[in-house]
Design a protein around this nucleic acid. Structure first.
Lengths: 205, 205
DNA sequence: CCCCTCGTGACACCGAGTGTCAATGCGCTA
DNA sequence: TAGCGCATTGACACTCGGTGTCACGAGGGG
């Protein structure tokens, strides 16, 4: 009977350590910048060993970028959940709004993290890597969604790329304005620009 | 009178060392993969010290990505050189074709390098970083080109992003097909998809 | 009560990247 | 031709990110 509890307990312990680590890391990184903080400082502040840090995060960048990990899966799930008949531009706009809405919600912490990521080359690179993975997932979802044959590999990839491109632009403008700009309005304006390309395919076939 | 010659000689020596380094690196990397080769192996093969390597390249990734360095400046120059009245989709299609055409030209070496970059996460990340810089440059060029005011920051960024997105998609398909796909045809098809969004702005104002 | 497993810390180690300094080569000038 | 100045290089030590290994302790099951 303890197997369920044991797993749950272990899971909670893991989560506890992970939270402690991210908390310590985010505080130090926001204070001294990404390159100004060593992993040893982080683990000393969190009270664990360096080896343990790398058991929880694959790299020093990961402790920041992991913060946005579930956004990708959330986006893909949202796209899968959109009604079948919806226009691509509408479906993708809602899809991209999932992580953006989260940012707007806890704008206090999210803004600092996003600004740290966008102004730190190493973090930005990791972020772009992650976006590339999201794009592939969204493209695959689009193929199934629109019933395209496997030969038409160009449109889904471009459509997913355009959506994430809009996502990226909104994030930059929001971060650059220190949160003054409204993400929802920016998203609407961005999708107004790209919608003609997104929806042209349904008009042609 | 020797100042010109001296500079020229020094320049040529620098170029010689750089070429030797990239040559040795590319050969080893193509053979054993990015993570399977250390910088020490490269410099031993090239006959210089490790310190010298890092005087020529900022990082181990750079020795590969630098291979595509002038592509960015070439693209920006091409966009600046396009006729003023040209539609954005046309101007950007020619812009993106500059690096693609180079790839198609020396497809033997370019293909191996591109494949190495796209399948190596660390190299891919650097490549995406570089693309982000290109996107900013292209966006700035578009602002001047279309006479947009500084307030409309959304369209130029999205347009440049879409163009580079198409560039990236073409590169992936070309690389994934081992060079079998025709880059020119892929580029045309990709821009046929995104053109409605690219040119909508001139129809509206 | 013993065993087994899992998480952790400690330690050594590798590889990327940097700072520093001495030596070398080369053009220039007296 | 001798000497000066500048740029490039090699050698070395060092920091830091990241990994492999092992021994230890806690906790749970037989």
């Amino acid at each position: 009977m303890s197997s369920r509890r044991e797993i749950s307990l272990a899971e909670r312990k893991r989560q506890l350590v992970a939270d402690e680590l991210t908390e310590a890391a985010l505080q130090l990184l926001a204070l001294k910048g990404f390159d100004g903080v060593t992993v040893d400082e982080i683990v000393t502040s969190a009270g664990v060993s360096k080896r343990t840090f790398f058991r929880y995060f694959a790299s020093k960048e990961d402790v920041v970028v992991q913060f946005l990990a579930d956004m990708g899966t959330g986006m893909c799930a949202e796209l899968a959940a959109r009604p079948a008949g919806e226009l691509p531009s509408e479906a993708l706009r809602h899809t991209v709004w999932v992580p953006l809405g989260e940012c707007a919600e806890h704008s206090d912490r999210a803004l600092r993290v996003v600004q740290l990521i966008l102004r730190t080359p190493a973090l930005n690179a990791r972020f772009l890597e992650r976006q590339a993975r999201w794009r592939d997932d969204l493209a695959a979802e689009l193929v199934g969604r629109l019933g395209l044959d496997a030969g038409a590999e160009l449109y889904p990839r471009l459509a997913a790329g355009m959506a994430l491109n809009a996502f990226d632009a909104v994030l930059h403008l929001w971060s650059g304005s220190d949160g003054a700009e409204d993400p929802a309005a920016l998203t609407d304006r961005a999708f107004a620009v790209i919608a003609p390309a997104l929806d042209a395919v349904v008009g042609r076939g």
